[in-house]
Every structure is written in structure tokens, then in C-alpha cells.
Nucleic acid binder design. Sequence first.
DNA 1: TGTCAATTGTCAGCGGCTGTCATTAGCCTC
DNA 2: GAGGCTAATGACAGCCGCTGACAATTGACA
Lengths: 218, 218
Amino acid sequence: MTGLRERKKQHTRESLVRAAYELFVEKGYDATTVDEIVAAVDVSQRTFFRYFASKEEVAFSLQALVTERYLEAVRSRPPGESPVELLRSTLDETWESIGEAIEEVVPLTLYMRMWQIIETTPALLAVQLRHAAGMEEQLAAEVARREGVDPDADPRPRVLVAAFSGVMRAAFRCWSSGEDITVEAAQQAVESYVDQLGPALSRDWERHPAPRTPPLPG
Amino acid sequence: MTGLRERKKQHTRESLVRAAYELFVEKGYDATTVDEIVAAVDVSQRTFFRYFASKEEVAFSLQALVTERYLEAVRSRPPGESPVELLRSTLDETWESIGEAIEEVVPLTLYMRMWQIIETTPALLAVQLRHAAGMEEQLAAEVARREGVDPDADPRPRVLVAAFSGVMRAAFRCWSSGEDITVEAAQQAVESYVDQLGPALSRDWERHPAPRTPPLPG
DNA sequence: TGTCAATTGTCAGCGGCTGTCATTAGCCTC
DNA sequence: GAGGCTAATGACAGCCGCTGACAATTGACA
């Protein structure tokens, strides 16, 4: 087992995350002061900034966990899938795993509300988009590696990942602005949006709106 | 003609933009202080914040102009084009117009260097991505209007725009990290990336890397 | 137990940003 | 052209995010 010092550190860190999340959800991100967060955990402000480089960072400590999991899952996927299938099926595979990982730190409902706050707070939204862009980089690199192409010479990995991520973001945005803030609803939104990618790019859209629950492929 | 007061205001505003751009390009965004900007124009710091809500905003005063132009061009496009064609051909159409509009305020090379700074400064990159997301919203709304679908019920407009914007962003990123920082190079990068969208989504990628200058459709 | 190193608290200070209020300067009327 | 009116500016104080530096504390380990 790890030493006392190590455990204490992890404890303060998690306490700070929890306190921050609760305050952000309760009174909003901008209205929450770092002083208030550290007061709730009873540490000095200086200590906070030794754990987190900025007030924003604490808000994304769990988001980082999520993207890390997804990337790992993509990397450990068996070969043989086409790039689109890779991204799509990894999504299917990792939903529960990610949900469980989150709940080890904070309740899932709190995390969901935090996501809403991120989407509605301009400063946080901006940072989230930047993080997503960072993940795109790594995803594109992995796709290129799998397909044996040079990611700097062949635009297709980046193009695919960019399109895929864009669609995912649109889906999350739709989900987080809706009423059903559950993992299942998120999963539903993302998958239905992804399935619309092909039709949306087709030359002529049929006049009738696409069904909310699109037909399953195959 | 406008009064003296109005002209003075516009003058200070443009002076602030120019001074800011030059300082940002010269010593970097983070290393540039608002105090330095206002010192170069000889106004008080308070005045700066009456013109721009934040230090970031002055860096994007021209970006706003660009997206505005593109949106207008999309809106004034004749009907009959498919959604993808709409976005693609508006792009072709507006390159020079936008370039000219920029040069009325600052030299194009300065603007290009500023773009590089935005892409390489985390704080600015984040804000730019947020602005892009805002434009996506409006683009999706326009696409939905043209196709006569409900943007809240039919995910295709958002999906298409998300994919298209993601690809554009990837192209700009590639361009801004390269050596040829000209409008033509940007145009070239964007159009070749957009043309790779279909191939990238196809089930099986051919093993050979796609050509940098892809074959024209049709 | 005593030494060493890691962690923390305290303090001073910078830079972004805002509210407030007095001052200046363009506008408009007589 | 002198007057009042209003918009724009400057000056000041102050909050908040964030950092460097140094001293105090506390776990680790011989």
C-alpha cells in the first residue's frame, strides 16, 4: 500500500474536486471563488494552485479521465476494422466502463450537471473544445498508424477524426441541453447523430425529417 | 458624414487593434500586457476595456469580420444547391472578398501571423474554437431553413455542419503550421481537405496515401 | 530519535477586469 | 460664440486569478 503522505495528497485532491464541483453546480462557475473552494476543504489557496494549474483545470479533472479511457480503448481495439467502424464501435464498447470510472470519484448526476455547466459557461466551453482538439490529434495519429499512412502527408485521418468529433460534439450539445440527463440518453444521442453522418453528406436530402431513432445499420 | 466624435472613436478602436496585433506578433500574446497596448495608443486602461470586453476580444476583432462575411455569403446564395455544395461553393466564392476586407484594417501578412499566434496560444485557441462553434450554430440554422427541416428534430444540419467545420479546422491547422502563410495556400489546404471528406468516410482506404492535390470531382 | 525531503502556509505582488466618480470634450440651441 | 447637455475619458480603489519566495510543518527512513 502507498504511504500516508501519498494518501493524504490524493485525499486533498479529491476533496478539492468534489468541493469545486458542488460549488460550481450550486452557484455557477464564474460566481465561485477559489477562496471558497479552499475554504470548504480548509487548505490554503496556494495549495490549490499546486494541485491544479488553474481554476479551469479542476473543472476538467474528470473529463480528462474520460478521454483517456476512450483513447486507451481505441488503441487496444483488434485490427481489421475500418476507421469509421473503429471510432464507432469503441464508442459502443466504453460507455459503461467510463460511467463506472466516474462514479468512483463523484456521483454520476453531479458529473452530468457539471457537464451542463461546462456547456453553458463560455470560458469552460472554450477550454473543453481545446481539449477535444487535443484528443483529435491523438485519435488521428492512432488511425494513421493503424492504416499505415503518414498523418502529415495524408489528410484522411485528420479529416475523418475531425468529422467524427464534430458530430460527437453536436450530439453532446443536443443531449446536454435536453431534459434527460442520463448516460443512456447521451449514448442514444451520440449514436443517432453518428448514424446521420452518411445521410447528411449525401447529395439530396429527402424532404421528410430523419427519424429521431434512426434504423440500425445492417 | 459622421461627426468628429464618431470618427475619433473609430480611430482609437482601430489604433488599439493595430497596436495589439503588432505587440502580439512581436512578443507573443501572454507576454503582452494591456498596459503596453494602451501605452502605445496613449489611452487609459479603462478605455481599452470599454472598447473590448477582454484582452482576448481584441485579438478576435478581425476573425469576427471573417465569419460574418462567410455567413452572409451563405445566406445570399441562390437556392438549388445541396447542403454540401452550398458550404463548399460559398467557400470558393468568398476567398478574395474576405482578404480584401481584412486588408482595409491591417496588412494581410500581419493578420496571417496573428492566426499563427492564435493557433499556438492555448488560451486563444480555446476562444477561437468557441467562436467557431457559435458559427456552426448559425450555419446549421441556415442549412435547415434552406432544406425546410426542423433543426431541433432533424440532426442532419448540425451533423453536416459539424463535420464540415471540423474538416475546415483541421485544414487551417495544417496550413497555419506550414511555411506558406498565404491566402492561396490556405485556400488550397481547405479545399483539398474538404475533398477528402468522402474518401475518409469510405469503408476501405486504399493503401497508398491520397495525393496532396486530390483529383477534381466529376 | 534525528535528519532529510516533501508538502504546506504565509506573504507580497502582478495582471486582467470592474465599479465609481470627477473631468474633459464633442454636440446642439439660442 | 456662449451656454448647457451628454457622451467619452481618466483616475482611483478594489476584487480575483495566479505566481515566486521563504519559512514552517510533517511524513519518511536510517
